[in-house]
Computed example of a mutant assay.
Amino acid sequence: MPLRRCLHQLIVIAGVALLAACATTKEGVLPDTSGDVKPDVVWRTSLGEGPGVTYTRLKAAVNDGTIYAADTGGTVTALELATGDRLWSVDLEQPILGGVSFSQDQLFVSLREGTLVALAAEDGSEQWRSMLPSEAVAQAAADNKRVFIQTVDGRVTALEREDGEQAWSYEAGMPVLSVRGTGTPLITDRLVITGYATGKLVALDKVLGIPRWDVRLGVPDGRSELERLVDVDGSPVMDGRLIYAAAYHGKVAAISEMGEVVWQEEGSTYTSPELALGSVYLTLDDDSIQSYDMMSGARAWQQTALKGRGLSQVTAMGTYLAVADEEGYVHFLSQVDGGLEGRILLRPRPLHINYPHQSEATNWRLSRGRDFGIRSNMVDTEEGLLVYTNAGDLALIELR
C-alpha cells in the first residue's frame, strides 16, 4: 500500500477514535431498561487473541449447528453451536483481519498480508492460498463458481473457488482520504454489489467484472477532508427485489436491481442496515438507532438513550434488536418502538475486581492495554445470539 494512503488512513482512524472517546458516556451511567428481557449466557469460551484496540471486526460464520470463528493471531476454530465444544482448530500463521465466511463446505479467510485462504469446513484442511491486491478487512462472499472480496485499496477481485485463480479485478478511484473499512459484497444472480469510499454503491457484472450501474449515497461536502468523508463501509443487504445500503455523511437508500432509487433518507453510518419485520434498522454515527419503513423509507422511531457508547451494528433477534457497546454491554431493544428491554455485561471473569458500593461497570475496571468492548458484528442463530468480544471471548446468549 502506498505510504501516503497508509498515513491518511492512520490519521482518519485516530481522528475517529478521538471523537468517539470524547463522546463516550461516563462508565456506569446507563439508561434504565424495562427488564422484560433477561439475557443469559449459555456458554462462553476464549478463542485466543481478540481484536483488542485495533480496527479489526471479526465475524463468525454459522452453518448447520457449527460455528467457524477466527482470532486475530491466525487461528481458525470450529465449535459446536449448542455447547461451544471445539471440533477442530488450525493455525494459518498470519494475523487474520476479515473473519470467516462459509459457502458450500468451504471457508474463506483473509490474512493481514493480503492473502485469501480457502479451507475445508469439515476439518480445516487448507485447499489454496491466493494473493490479493491489498489487505481485506471484511468477509469474502461466494457463489457456486467464484469468490468475491473487496480490499482496502478500492478493488473488488473475483477468484475461482476451485483453485483461487483470479477471474477478474475491478478498481474504483479512491479519494485522498478515506475511513479504513469495506463491506462484504452482495451477490445476486447477475451482479456483485458493493460500496466505495467515493460514496457510491456500484453494481458489477458477476461474469465480466464491468460496472452495470452506480448510485451515489454520499456527496463530499465540507472544508476539511474529514468533513468530506462519504465512505460506504457497511455491506449492502437485500430483501425481495430491493437492495438497502447506507453511507457515512450520506443517505440510507432502497434501490432496485436495475439501479433505480426507490427511496432515500438521511442516515449517516459506518455500519450495514439490518432488515426485520418490514423495517430497516440502522446504527447511526452518533450512536442513535433509527428505524425506517422498508417500503417507503418513512421514519418510525429513533432511540437516542445510548448515544456516546460506541455502538456496534444492530442485529435482529426474534422481535428484538441487539446492539453492543465499547464497555462490553449488549443492549436489547424492542423492534416495535425502540424501547430498551434488557442488557447483559460481557467482560472476562478472571479479571473481576469488586469495589464496595460501586456499580457493576466500575467493578470491571479496564486493565492497561486491554479493550473489553464489543466491535464485531453479532450473529443471530437458532440457539441464541453469538457475540465475539474485543478481548477474544466468544459467547452464546439466550433470552428469557
Results as ranks from 00 to 15, higher is better:
Pro2Tyr: 10
Arg4Lys: 15
Arg5Gly: 13
Cys6Ser: 11
Leu7Ser: 13
Ile11Cys: 00
Ala14Ser: 12
Ala14Phe: 04
Ala17Gly: 02
Leu18Trp: 06
Ala20Arg: 15
Lys26Leu: 14
Gly35Val: 08
Val37Ile: 13
Val42Asn: 12
Val42His: 06
Leu47His: 09
Gly50Val: 02
Pro51Met: 09
Gly52Glu: 12
Thr54Asn: 09
Tyr55Asn: 09
Arg57His: 01
Leu58Asp: 05
Ala60Asn: 05
Ile67Pro: 02
Tyr68Lys: 11
Tyr68Gln: 14
Gly73Cys: 01
Thr75Leu: 11
Val76His: 09
Glu80Val: 14
Leu81Thr: 06
Leu87Asp: 08
Trp88Val: 02
Trp88His: 11
Gln94Met: 07
Pro95Met: 05
Pro95Trp: 05
Val100Trp: 05
Ser101Cys: 15
Gln104Asn: 15
Phe108Met: 01
Val117Thr: 00
Ala118Gly: 14
Ala120Ile: 14
Ala120Thr: 14
Ser125Arg: 15
Glu126Asn: 09
Glu126Ser: 09
Gln127Ser: 15
Ser130Met: 06
Leu132Phe: 03
Leu132Gln: 06
Pro133Glu: 07
Ser134Thr: 03
Gln139Tyr: 05
Asn144Met: 11
Val147Ala: 10
Thr151Arg: 05
Thr151Ala: 07
Thr151Phe: 06
Ala158Glu: 01
Glu171Lys: 11
Glu171Trp: 14
Val176Arg: 13
Val179Ser: 01
Gly181Tyr: 04
Gly183Ser: 08
Ile193Glu: 10
Ala197Arg: 00
Thr198Ile: 00
Lys200Thr: 13
Leu201Cys: 04
Asp205Gln: 13
Val207Met: 12
Gly209Thr: 11
Ile210Ser: 06
Arg212Gly: 05
Trp213Asn: 01
Asp214Arg: 09
Val219Glu: 00
Gly222Asn: 02
Arg223Glu: 06
Leu229Pro: 02
Val230Thr: 09
Pro236Leu: 12
Leu242Ser: 12
Ala247Pro: 00
Gly250Thr: 01
Gly250Ala: 04
Lys251Asp: 13
Val252Gly: 13
Ile255Arg: 00
Met258Pro: 13
Val262Tyr: 08
Trp263His: 02
Trp263Val: 11
Gln264Met: 15
Glu265Gly: 12
Tyr270His: 07
Thr271Ser: 13
Thr271Val: 03
Gly278Val: 03
Val280Asn: 09
Leu284Lys: 00
Asp287Phe: 03
Gln290Ser: 06
Met294Phe: 06
Met295Lys: 14
Gln302Ala: 05
Gln302Val: 13
Gln303Ile: 02
Gln303Thr: 13
Gln303Trp: 00
Ala305Lys: 05
Gly310Asp: 12
Thr315Lys: 03
Ala316Ile: 03
Leu321Thr: 08
Val323Lys: 12
Val323Glu: 07
Tyr329His: 10
Val330Gln: 12
His331Gly: 11
Phe332Met: 02
Leu333Asp: 01
Leu333Thr: 11
Asp337Lys: 05
Gly339Tyr: 04
Gly339Gln: 13
Leu340Pro: 04
Leu345Trp: 07
Arg347Ser: 03
Pro348Leu: 01
Pro350Cys: 11
Ile353Met: 11
Pro356Val: 15
His357Met: 13
His357Trp: 14
Gln358Ile: 13
Asn363Thr: 02
Gly369Gln: 05
Asp371Pro: 01
Asp371Gly: 04
Ile374Met: 07
Val379Asn: 03
Gly384Asp: 07
Tyr388Met: 13
Asp393Glu: 05
Asp393Met: 10
Leu394Thr: 09
Ala395Cys: 12
Arg400Glu: 15
